[in-house]
Amino acid sequence: MIITAKGISKSYKRGKGGKGFVQVLSDTDLSIEGGKVYVIYGRSGSGKSTLMNILAGILSPSSGSVSYDGRDIYSLSDRELSALRCLSVGYIPQMHSAVGTLTVRENILLPSAVSEKPVDSARADELIDLLGLTELADVRANVLSGGELRRLSLARALVNSPSVIFADEPTNDLDDECAKLVVQTLHASAQAGAAVVIVTHELFARSDADVVLCMQNSSLVREKG
């Protein structure tokens, strides 16, 4: 899959008490291909998460377009776009990683419930083993630690074998071993053909990336690849 972003701009209305708008992204272009790992970094509040959300079909841009294999996703109906997110996009959020009332396994299988695809329990079990969640499979998500939740998020993002994976600070607050496992798993997905977009502060994540992009002054600067 090829994702193309053209002339993306995004401005937010200032919060309560503020006046006017904040320009977060300005006329940004980007092309993402399957089989590669993209790392976007930048200081906090620079707009990297906003860009990722726009690319993932979660946040519509103020102007510009995002296409998946030539199809403008923001011209799709909400139902079509939701189906696209379910089938083609894996998303690892920074916060709110799980539905607390569900077990780890049920959380991982959530995308299968939404899509019309049959539940791939074998794939879920494989990811549970791979990410060291076997003993926690039947435990409710609301008792998991931050690291366990991050691994759960990763498993859920991969369960439908999506074409593109977006990860927002996937190694934040993780110990080295765990962070390494997460990054390795994301790289394995890229090797399997998925496009992987990682938003991170971590330096080590950049070294192995195929493409490194820095968010500066509301625009992307390509540093590598």
């Binding site: 993932a56 979660i58 939701s82 997110r85 998303y91 709110h96 990683s97 539905v99 607390g100 995308p111």
Partner: peptide, 16 residues
């Protein structure tokens, strides 16, 4: 809100 935002990301439409 967080839970529903997550469901949206996973593929829940507004109607669903």
């Amino acid at each position: 809100k967080g839970e529903f935002a997550l469901l949206r990301v996973i593929g829940f439409s507004r109607a669903r």
